Computed example of a mutant assay.
Amino acid sequence: MSLHELNTFPGVTAEPDAATQGFVFNHTMLRVKDITASLDFYTRVLGFHLVDKRDFPEAEFSLYFLALVDKAHIPQDDAARHQWMKSIPGVLELTHNHGTENDAGFSYYNGNTDSRGFGHICVSVPDVVAACARFEQLNVPFQKRLQDGRMNHLAFVKDPDGYWVEIIQPTPL
């Protein structure tokens, strides 16, 4: 389908309302059981940087904001960093409810068991084959390896809570 065909697809407004100029898809939030395991996965395994943290002790939860950005671009000043973080696309917010990491039977619904809803997030990498080989070496659990099924150009790994992360590359394999 061409871009013109997509923009004339029934139900699609060809031009967004002018009032939406400047809107940015800023972040997606995932609830996580063990923040230490989740931060390790998203920073060390997937390369995100922790750009902000907000604690709410009275409500017993903390928010961690991560982004795939050049660390040199992250403002050092707290107020400037907080404002900058709200203006960039593709931020991942991890919400940790204090104490969940100590409950062996506790888990969050990952969206991919019955009844399905939320599906996955996606990370684009320069070389999907090399990234998947690295994930194998790091013992990252896979939902789908490159060689599985018909879609051999993408993979799915699982984070510590079982959320699926699609791994793609922008260029053809």
Score class of each variant (00 low, 15 high):
D52C: 02
S2D: 12
I88W: 00
Y109E: 13
P160E: 00
V140I: 10
V125G: 03
L6H: 10
L173M: 13
L46Q: 04
A18S: 09
L50A: 05
D77Y: 11
H82R: 13
F118D: 02
E93K: 06
G11L: 08
M151T: 10
P141Q: 13
Y163V: 03
F48N: 01
V45W: 07
V24P: 01
N139R: 07
Q83E: 13
A18I: 11
D103Q: 12
T13H: 14
T13W: 12
G162F: 02
R150H: 09
S124L: 09
I35A: 06
N152G: 12
Y42Q: 00
I121K: 01
Q169Y: 00
A155E: 03
S107T: 13
D127S: 04
V128C: 04
D40P: 09
A130Y: 02
D161H: 03
W84R: 00
P10D: 07
P89L: 09
A155I: 08
M1T: 07
L94I: 08
V123P: 00
S38F: 05
R116C: 13
I88F: 01
Y42I: 05
P126L: 05
C132H: 08
Q76Y: 14
T8L: 09
R81Y: 00
F48G: 00
I121R: 02
L46D: 03
T20E: 08
A37C: 01
S107R: 14
W84C: 03
L154I: 12
P16R: 12
A19T: 09
F25V: 14
N102E: 10
R145G: 07
G149W: 03
R145C: 10
D34T: 07
Q137H: 12
E93T: 04
D148Y: 09
E58S: 13
F41A: 09
E60W: 10
N97S: 09
K53R: 14
H96G: 00
V51G: 05
L63M: 11
S62F: 10
F9M: 12
Y64W: 08
E136T: 10
K158W: 03
I121S: 02
P126V: 08
K53L: 02
A131I: 08
L173H: 07
H4R: 14
N26I: 01
L146I: 02
P141D: 04
L30V: 11
W164Q: 06
E15L: 12
R44Y: 03
R54E: 01
R116T: 14
P75Q: 05
R145W: 07
L94T: 07
G119S: 15
T113E: 15
I167D: 00
G22F: 04
F48I: 01
H49K: 14
S87H: 07
T20F: 11
T13M: 14
N152D: 13
L50N: 02
